[in-house]
Design a protein around this nucleic acid. Sequence first.
DNA 1: TAGATTGTTAATCGATTAACAATC
DNA 2: TAGATTGTTAATCGATTAACAATC
Lengths: 238, 238
Amino acid sequence: MTTSDRSRGPRGRGIPDATVARLPVYLRALSTLADDGVTTVSSEELATAAGVNSAKLRKDLSYLGSYGTRGVGYDVDYLVYQISRELGLTQDWPVVIVGLGHLGHALANYGGFASRGFAIRALVDADPDLVGTEIAGTTVSPLADLEEQVRQHAVAIGVIATPAAVAQDIADRLVAAGVSSILNFAPIVLSVPSQVEVRKVDMSIELQILAFHEQRKLAPGGRVASELARDLAEAIGR
Amino acid sequence: MTTSDRSRGPRGRGIPDATVARLPVYLRALSTLADDGVTTVSSEELATAAGVNSAKLRKDLSYLGSYGTRGVGYDVDYLVYQISRELGLTQDWPVVIVGLGHLGHALANYGGFASRGFAIRALVDADPDLVGTEIAGTTVSPLADLEEQVRQHAVAIGVIATPAAVAQDIADRLVAAGVSSILNFAPIVLSVPSQVEVRKVDMSIELQILAFHEQRKLAPGGRVASELARDLAEAIGR
DNA sequence: TAGATTGTTAATCGATTAACAATC
DNA sequence: TAGATTGTTAATCGATTAACAATC
């Protein structure tokens, strides 16, 4: 992971990476509750909605401060605000999407971004047929204008939805233009300076992890034939 | 995480979740090396290509067995085979994709699936205009045929690329029809029986994690104004 | 043999969890 | 006050890492 450590601030405060990764999940569950008119929620209820256990939820929230009331629970709106503030979602983050194939299209049209403080300010693609067209209200710029678009809109977060072959080049250009966070959908390991944060979304990897567990389910005792064979080989001294 | 523990097999063997999640990354790096004609690789080289350190790589590989040669390194093809086998990629996994908006389209057309032993056998969508059309060589079936498609093709892995509002219903139907692994792109926490494995891909969550780190970079010493204010409030006794 | 590199050990670090005192 | 629920402690568990003996 390319994430910073937690030794920040006085008294060693700082939020663990595992906690940061769960805050958006809590935020979504809280938003749903708020939409349903719920004003107060217990750690038990919120944990269930978020798919974690309540001890973990309370520990996670304790890193942000003491925002609950003993015997009562948490005020939904107040907690939404505190988590949003901690995640930096009370300000707008200008985003550029590079690559507008089906995936880029899906990202550009995804409503979940705008509602969370992410503003898609620029779309960039290499295909002349796409340049000039409008996607979700934004005109597609040519690849040559990448740096200009980043600077003009003060883009901090770049999304790479290009083929793998050009992803590293795009990353280099994004970083050179001033982008310091990258969300990478291309199936390659990007090389970037250490101060640049990269997160990867890789559907193929997720499927392979599922296949591993799926395979385990097939054999009796959760063990596959190949594994039994290896044990046997070892038992007889290889 | 909805993953199984590692107490499998004799002598407590079993591969840690963190290792399983990295095996596909190693596999991809090895495939690239193989394509470049490289036949042998050291843990140091492979680790660099995969974006991890070599100690972690060697520890990870040691869970599979002793497939390297001291003083020499690892045979690329042999390691590709061993990792593929461990991940269950030496067999074909029939997949159904439910929901064929831009994202579903992107998934259906993604070449990275087929090349890794995943065979998209069925496409399902609720939109009558899409039903009957062909995407990446497969005809789209109506939602009503979901169960029939799953059974007919012996689908083990279901991909949900629908709007959040219907995702839980789709998950229920997939499970009832016999699917035991789900890759969920809808932004909700799915509720499924414990024997069903669910993995989630959530772009909005990834962006929010980036925003958190981005925000930290803005303030001097990595601390944002709101945090400084809280420290101050605590220092003076709240 | 000398040099190189694996596989494993052991120490450290970070995350999870149960339990319960604090307190509304 | 009595009941409920938080925030925190401490134990446990799992993951990472450096170091090096084993061995090609």
